[in-house]
């Protein structure tokens, strides 16, 4: 339990991940599912960012007056890329949802069973 308390940042991202997974598994609405997917994505980002936390770390910008410790720049670079890719997948998924609605008139996945 003590280890969980010191790693509370990781625990928060695990909880967010599970909330997103719940939305994907239970919700029928496609937009709601996509929101769940986005929450899962941000949970993973938060997890990777937590691995890069340095206590009292400053932003890794080496201007005048910068002094260590610095936050870890590597997870930040990875997550920057990840956020943009998340935006691309969301945009594609939303346009698919709009197309599904135009074609079938519904975005509830239960109603989409058996449509022609």
């Amino acid at each position: 339990m003590r280890a969980l308390w010191t790693n509370i940042d990781y625990v928060a991202s695990v909880i967010l991940f599970l909330i997103g997974l719940y939305a994907i598994m239970v919700k029928g609405n496609l937009i709601k599912k996509l929101m769940g997917l986005n929450i899962m994505e941000t949970a993973v980002f938060a997890f990777v960012m937590s691995a890069g936390i340095v206590t009292d770390g400053d932003a890794p910008i080496m201007g005048a007056g910068a002094k260590p410790p610095f936050a870890n720049p590597l997870p930040q670079g990875l997550i920057l890329t990840g956020i943009v890719v998340a935006l691309s997948t969301s945009a594609l998924a939303l346009s698919l949802i709009i197309r599904i609605y135009r074609q079938y008139g519904t975005i509830e996945s239960d109603d989409l069973w058996g449509v022609e």
């Binding site: 280890a3 969980l4 010191t6 790693n7 509370i8 990781y10 695990v14 691995a51 936390i53 340095v54």
Partner: peptide, 9 residues
């Protein structure tokens, strides 16, 4: 998660 090294070290 509880086995990971402590956050911030």
């Amino acid at each position: 998660v509880s086995l990971l090294p402590p956050v911030g070290s």
